[in-house]
Amino acid sequence: MITAENLVKRFGADHVAVNDVSFHVAPGEIMCLYGANGAGKTTTINMFLNFLQPSSGRAVISGIDATTQPLLARRHLGFLSENVRLYDNFTAMQNILFFSRLGNERAVDADECAAMLSECGLDGKFHHRRVGTFSKGMRQKAAFAICRIRNAKALFLDEPLSGLDPSAADSVLDSIRKLCDSGAAVLMSTHDLLRSSEIADKVALMKSGQLLARFSQAELKNVNLTQLYREAIN
């Protein structure tokens, strides 16, 4: 699970990037954060990843405080940004074997890794090709396979659909849904309202570091999310 408890992040004396943000994402749920650039979405995610430390409040992953116990928290999380960070000189298989063994309590063999790459949409003919030759969509598929093979309990996604063609974006969303079906909690920052809202269990609008509004999937049926988003960013 993913829990924000009154998170605050200040930069200097005058700028509050995240202002008293609280939410909870249960296992098997997807929560999408929407807002303009600079609204505080990435800063919020970065506090869970311990890239930034909260000025106050807590970022909690599976009951573990990400600030006071960052190494333990990282065993439970997966992270994908707009620009997936993999070893370009490694093949897809070498990448997944390497990352699957970092902090993993169980041994993972090559057959299991190959099956996961295929399940995440990466054709077998690409398993032994260098990731540096991959398209952005193919890199995303390899990265999702790594998250799934590591059995991540909390997944943080920062603009995972940016720059993807419709087919690749649909494939990424399918991988996200499969991770949730396996019990992961997902927090996703995105500008793609149309696609992401179809799979989200809850959404929240951010502006100037605060959560302006939040809606469940059932409530979204009676809300003009696009209009609210436009009002929030203007």
Results as ranks from 00 to 15, higher is better:
213 A>T: 06
11 F>A: 10
215 F>A: 06
103 G>N: 07
42 T>S: 15
233 I>Y: 04
25 V>W: 04
224 N>E: 03
231 E>T: 01
131 V>G: 01
185 A>S: 07
12 G>W: 06
12 G>K: 11
86 L>T: 10
127 H>K: 04
231 E>Y: 02
56 S>R: 12
84 V>T: 15
34 Y>H: 02
139 R>H: 06
92 A>E: 14
81 S>P: 02
140 Q>D: 13
232 A>F: 05
69 Q>C: 03
21 V>H: 00
227 Q>Y: 05
192 D>A: 10
91 T>L: 03
135 S>E: 13
8 V>K: 14
227 Q>T: 00
124 G>K: 09
203 V>R: 06
88 D>R: 10
107 A>W: 12
213 A>S: 13
96 I>S: 06
86 L>A: 08
56 S>M: 04
123 D>Q: 12
132 G>Y: 08
108 V>T: 13
229 Y>E: 11
29 E>V: 03
179 L>Q: 06
215 F>S: 01
204 A>C: 11
230 R>S: 06
84 V>R: 08
79 F>W: 08
178 K>M: 07
90 F>L: 15
207 K>W: 09
16 V>G: 04
35 G>L: 03
221 K>F: 00
142 A>I: 04
75 R>F: 11
70 P>H: 06
123 D>Y: 05
9 K>N: 01
1 M>A: 13
147 C>A: 14
179 L>K: 02
160 P>R: 08
171 S>V: 10
113 C>Y: 09
230 R>L: 15
59 A>P: 08
88 D>T: 10
190 T>Y: 03
214 R>S: 14
107 A>F: 12
197 S>A: 13
192 D>H: 04
39 A>M: 08
77 L>F: 09
209 G>F: 08
7 L>N: 03
157 L>F: 13
202 K>A: 11
185 A>W: 05
52 L>V: 14
62 S>A: 14
108 V>F: 01
1 M>T: 14
58 R>E: 12
185 A>K: 00
209 G>H: 01
89 N>P: 05
44 T>E: 00
185 A>F: 03
11 F>E: 00
69 Q>D: 12
118 S>K: 07
95 N>G: 06
5 E>N: 12
31 M>L: 13
186 V>Q: 07
111 D>I: 14
166 P>E: 00
45 I>H: 05
123 D>S: 11
85 R>A: 15
6 N>R: 12
212 L>F: 12
63 G>M: 08
212 L>I: 08
159 E>F: 04
7 L>A: 09
82 E>I: 02
212 L>N: 08
163 G>D: 02
38 G>S: 10
215 F>C: 04
153 K>I: 13
222 N>I: 00
67 T>R: 11
60 V>Y: 05
226 T>V: 14
35 G>D: 09
68 T>I: 00
55 S>K: 10
208 S>Y: 01
101 R>A: 13
129 R>T: 10
9 K>Q: 07
30 I>C: 05
171 S>T: 15
23 F>G: 05
98 F>H: 11
34 Y>D: 01
98 F>T: 10
204 A>Y: 15
102 L>Y: 04
123 D>G: 01
217 Q>G: 04
171 S>G: 11
126 F>P: 04
1 M>V: 14
101 R>C: 06
15 H>Y: 15
59 A>E: 00
13 A>K: 12
108 V>G: 07
209 G>E: 05
87 Y>R: 09
88 D>Y: 08
52 L>Y: 11
75 R>G: 15
52 L>G: 12
148 R>P: 08
213 A>M: 06
56 S>T: 11
108 V>L: 03
